[in-house]
């Protein structure tokens, strides 16, 4: 392991504990780590977008085409067409100069239109049609009671689905029979939200477990564990104590 990597493992432990210090209270160490995070993630995204997308999917074909590069001409015979998305993309920067700022709406409209159009087809074909189709009761299901391919389970689930959809039907007041059905629909949704809550707890805990593993368990990437974490706890605690004393010094009577 190189010196840079050893320094890196200590830095990683420090940053982890600096973020966790927020659990005590908002403090300068947390703010420092938070701002490093924003800067690094924005920078990382820009680099990735540049070298993984903008270069191979836009700039390289144009550059290679202009320089009559044989490989580029073979891969992108119509390389000149890339000047259209380039021009559109550059129009986005028009918003930096007020007289032509409105031109930045053009590329935005292109992207919004593309996503609006594709989302209509995606939602209609995958979510609406197939989900309704799958809710049709199949009496030939052979699965155990715990799974959906059991006739009773599917019938109960479909009943719950209809009730929940009726709850979302607001054109008529939820009174009488409609009110009862809508209420059953709410119960089904509450059980569903309960399931989501259970899964969410599990997910968030897993992330905390992952961080604890990386701090405390010795791996090739962290061969000195748990020492960086233990030293980090001492350093972070000391820094927070110093900061607290600075913002509210102990009075003369205190020890």
């Amino acid at each position: 392991m190189s010196t840079a990597e050893i320094v890196g493992t200590w830095l990683a432990a420090f940053f982890t504990l600096a973020i966790l210090s927020f659990l005590y209270k908002d403090n300068p160490l947390y703010k420092f780590a938070e701002h490093v995070f924003v800067g690094v993630s924005a920078g990382y995204q820009l680099v990735r977008q540049t070298f993984d997308v903008a270069w191979p999917n836009l700039l390289q074909p144009l550059w290679g085409g202009l320089h009559r590069d044989v490989d580029t001409l073979k891969a992108h015979p119509q390389w000149a067409f890339y000047s259209i998305p380039l021009a559109f993309g550059l129009l986005m920067f028009a918003r930096l100069w007020k007289p032509i700022a409105h031109l930045s709406r053009w590329p935005m409209s292109y992207i919004v239109g593309a996503f609006a159009g594709t989302s209509i087809i995606g939602a209609a074909s995958a979510d609406l049609v197939i989900q309704v189709q799958s809710s049709m009761v199949n009496l030939r299901g052979t699965g155990p009671w715990t799974l959906i391919d059991n006739p009773f389970s599917l019938a109960l689930s479909t009943f719950g689905l209809v009730c929940a959809l009726i709850y979302f039907f607001f054109s008529k007041e939820h009174k009488g029979a409609l009110g009862v059905v809508a209420r059953i629909g709410v119960y089904f949704m509450m059980v569903s939200f309960g399931g989501s809550f259970g899964f969410t707890v599990m997910g968030r805990l897993s992330l905390a477990v992952g961080r604890a593993q990386s701090l405390l368990v010795r791996t090739p990437l962290n061969p000195h564990a748990p020492w960086p974490a233990l030293v980090g706890v001492v350093v972070v605690t000391a820094l927070i104590v110093i900061w607290e004393r600075k913002i509210s010094p102990p009075s003369a009577g205190e020890g």
Partner: peptide, 16 residues
């Protein structure tokens, strides 16, 4: 797989 699916499908259909 059963009551959760009913709720999730209702939300999915509504969202679609």
């Amino acid at each position: 797989q059963v009551p959760n699916l009913a709720g999730k499908r209702a939300v999915l259909i509504g969202a679609a």
